[in-house]
């Protein structure tokens, strides 16, 4: 058993696990866990206080790898006020993803642009027309847990990853009528959608001869339309979530 443990430790150093739960959604879930479990000692903003370390510097004293941080949260640090937390592994990974995103210098949310200039670009390009209408993700608020990379990709390739609540649908009724709109919900027997005239509708699938989900975004790509500096500014504005 000693040999086996030694081998597995060696294995670990050559191929350490990286956090499998590191999407914007994971970070949002992690933020909720952080607020309920961690914030009372480490502060709502993660900057520590009363003897607890600042978690936003990108440097962690006791461990640097994801795996090492996982163990700290799971087991606690003996002789300190840091307890082991009775969270399942998914919750721990999500919380770590959120904590790492708090580091402006090293985290996935590291940006160099000027948020004020980004806000001007946002206005000048008419982004709010859709992104403050309920028909597209509300910006900048809903970019709060996105990484800089995710934001850049969403601006240059909007169809890359469309959240399901912004999927569209197209159906043809048995009488030959085409129905289209924003797909709001669906089950085995029916689909609920907001049609082009702004009417909430529910239609039985048995009344449709054709039905498809459209997962592409109606947003035009801004690939090549912004300079690198402008893209950084816009990213800085969006990643702020409008709060900083």
């Amino acid at each position: 058993m000693v040999t086996a443990a030694f081998l597995s430790a060696q294995e670990e150093s050559s191929s350490a696990i990286t956090n499998p739960f590191n999407t914007a959604e994971d970070r949002a879930d992690g933020a909720r866990t952080y607020l309920s479990q961690c914030a009372s000692c480490h502060g709502r903003d993660g900057k520590g206080g009363q003897g607890t370390p600042d978690l936003t510097t990108g440097v962690f004293k006791r461990a640097s790898s994801d795996e090492g941080l996982f163990a700290l949260v799971n087991k606690g640090i003996p002789g300190t006020a840091m307890p082991g937390f009775n969270l399942n592994s998914r919750q721990i990974w999500q919380t770590l993803a959120y904590i790492r995103s708090l580091s402006p210098a090293t985290g996935v949310r590291r940006v160099t642009g000027d948020p004020a200039r980004g806000a001007q670009l946002f206005r000048a390009n008419g982004c709010a027309k859709c992104h403050d209408s309920g028909n597209a993700p509300a910006l900048p608020a809903s970019a709060r847990y996105q990484s800089a990379e995710e934001i850049r990709r969403a601006v240059t390739d909007p169809s890359d990853s469309v959240q399901s609540q912004y999927w569209r649908m197209r159906g043809v009724t048995t009488s030959g009528q085409t129905v289209t709109g924003q797909r709001l919900n669906e089950d085995t027997f029916s689909v609920q959608f907001l049609d082009e005239s702004g009417r909430l509708r529910s239609i039985r699938k048995s009344e449709l001869s054709k039905y498809e989900i459209i997962r592409t975004s109606p947003m035009p790509s801004f690939q090549g339309k912004f300079s690198p500096q402008q893209m950084d500014d816009l990213t800085a504005y969006l990643i702020s979530g409008g709060s900083r």
């Binding site: 430790a9 670990e12 696990i17 499998p20 739960f21 996982f70 087991k75 082991g84 592994s89 990974w93």
Partner: peptide
């Protein structure tokens, strides 16, 4: 997607040695 990692047993805690996405 099945993940494996090392985990020590602790009473009353999840002891799954990995995770799933």
């Amino acid at each position: 997607t099945y993940f494996m990692w090392d985990q020590d047993y602790e009473r009353g805690k999840w002891y799954t040695g990995g995770g799933v996405k």
